[in-house]
Amino acid sequence: MACGSTSLWAGEATWFCCGNAWGSCGSAGTGACGTCQSGKNMAAWPNLSAACWDITRPDLCGENMPRRTCGAVMNVRHQCSGATVCVTLADCGPRTKSFCGEATCCNGACRTNRVIDLTPSAFTAIGSLSSGKLPVYIYE
């Protein structure tokens, strides 16, 4: 399946690790889909399943994104640099409800609420891990 260019969502992208053999990520496992690896361009989506939705509850922050399941692909584009990475959904996340209203900005424009979690491989393709968050547009 190829990544597309139809606008799907916008918000903050954060990062997480999965499948690592080191660090506090060592216990993270391979995610809800059983395929997640930090070294691959993968992502976690808050509406991966009904059970996932009950954990992430993005609707409590006004984010009612559609369901997309394991293996779905998305293009994630940095709001300002335009750098883009194509990711495959492999886990449930982020915990949107815990950070309602949080914003990340660049060039004076902000994106609000955590709407996608990227693996380190995917996140570093469009930004720096030490920033922790990026403002992004998401396409499919």
């Binding site: 640099s81 750098a83 469009i126 930004g127 720096s128 891990l129 920033s131």
Partner: peptide
């Protein structure tokens, strides 16, 4: 800090980007 944030895909496409973890 700016160098960390620089996205690799915008750079020379003739040189393949790489990522490593371990």
């Amino acid at each position: 800090e700016a160098a960390f944030a620089e996205p690799m895909p915008s750079l020379d496409a003739a040189i393949p980007a790489a990522f490593a973890e371990g």
